[in-house]
Design a protein around this nucleic acid. Sequence first.
DNA 1: AAAAGTCTCCATCAAATGATTGAAGCGGGG
DNA 2: CCCCGCTTCAATCATTTGATGGAGACTTTT
Lengths: 215, 215
Amino acid sequence: MMDTPLQKARKAPESMKARILAAARRIFGEYGFHGTTTRMIAKEVGIDISTLHYHWGEKKDLYAAVVVDINEDLRRKLIEVERLIHGRPLGERLSLSIDVMTDYLFAHPEVSNLVLMRYLNKTRDDVLVDIRIPEFTCDIARSMGLAADKKNVSADAKMKVLAVMNSIHNFISGESFFRSIVRADREAYIALVKETLNFIHVPAFTQNGSSQNKR
Amino acid sequence: MMDTPLQKARKAPESMKARILAAARRIFGEYGFHGTTTRMIAKEVGIDISTLHYHWGEKKDLYAAVVVDINEDLRRKLIEVERLIHGRPLGERLSLSIDVMTDYLFAHPEVSNLVLMRYLNKTRDDVLVDIRIPEFTCDIARSMGLAADKKNVSADAKMKVLAVMNSIHNFISGESFFRSIVRADREAYIALVKETLNFIHVPAFTQNGSSQNKR
DNA sequence: AAAAGTCTCCATCAAATGATTGAAGCGGGG
DNA sequence: CCCCGCTTCAATCATTTGATGGAGACTTTT
């Protein structure tokens, strides 16, 4: 006997609220805040817009939840990476971080999209969310040996971290665009991204003058 | 005797069509395609929306015109930079390019914004414009000595150029955000950006292995 | 000075969009 | 079995938004 649509939804392993959030991540990540309509998200989940509003309230509240969600994911991943690279020499730390973060972000491109959109696009209705990037930046700076502790990080060190982070996000978010330029399939493109990121960043951080951080 | 509003507009040095385009650059650059309404642009110019539609037709046509406009500006600037750096050694070429392009883009941040948005945000209504980035990429690759001619540029070389270009655009577009992180005023931030870009990119392109391009 | 052309605005429309309301479906506890 | 809370949806509302028509102001042409 067939399930009614309602029963089907009930049986879903994820709650409706979580399913909406997941869909919102994808759509907001693809089209941005103003480019996304609540109807687009509802359609992606296969529900009515009133159900969406029932669970999340206003559009901007849902968007705020999405931003918090991806920030949490990003934080978890960064902690994981920090553990992984602990104790290795700087060049290796950087190379490994690039490798792991690139793989992660290619699997979750909406993270890069939303991070980048967050400081590129202004939003007419100001959505107030605590963005965690400043905090992450300090963490990474310490982890890369650019600062002694995460409280006292120089502007210079922060800028270097931002440069590395952004260059990764850029290649993820611009995938479709850049792939058409270099004419590569997905796999080849990912390899190219890693190669390029290593080419650009490793020499800068391992050159003489910052080699005291190597160990 | 006071001029009527109409007479005042007539006397404007720029044509109404050009004024609308200039305002559209700013607003589209700030809020993106969907985040911008024709009313916002009209208000910025101080005119009625019907006047805007009279000169430019549909919203997407105006947006397309803006993209073409910034691409033309960017092309001109790149040619200028190419002339400026001609004949110098690679490290100097790169450093000088960063300096000049950074100054230019900080004076016209909507250029960076629109370029980045172009390959980040999808647009619901597909605006079809020939984006010139692929062409620029090849030009710069040749200019940087990464390719013999602009017809045969390897994927590898293109990726390196894209990495450099994007890192500049990023620091311009994210100015307000990044400045709050590093707590710098505009002038100090610009200096930090140049310093960071040189720190990141110069070693990569002047290290042993690519020094044959140094000449 | 009349006519034609150009440009601008006011009023208005139709569609899209964010949001709400009330009714109905569904499941669990009495 | 029936009530009750939780969830979902169809219908609907109010506002925003892209776009247009027509009248009026100004300039140029005749």
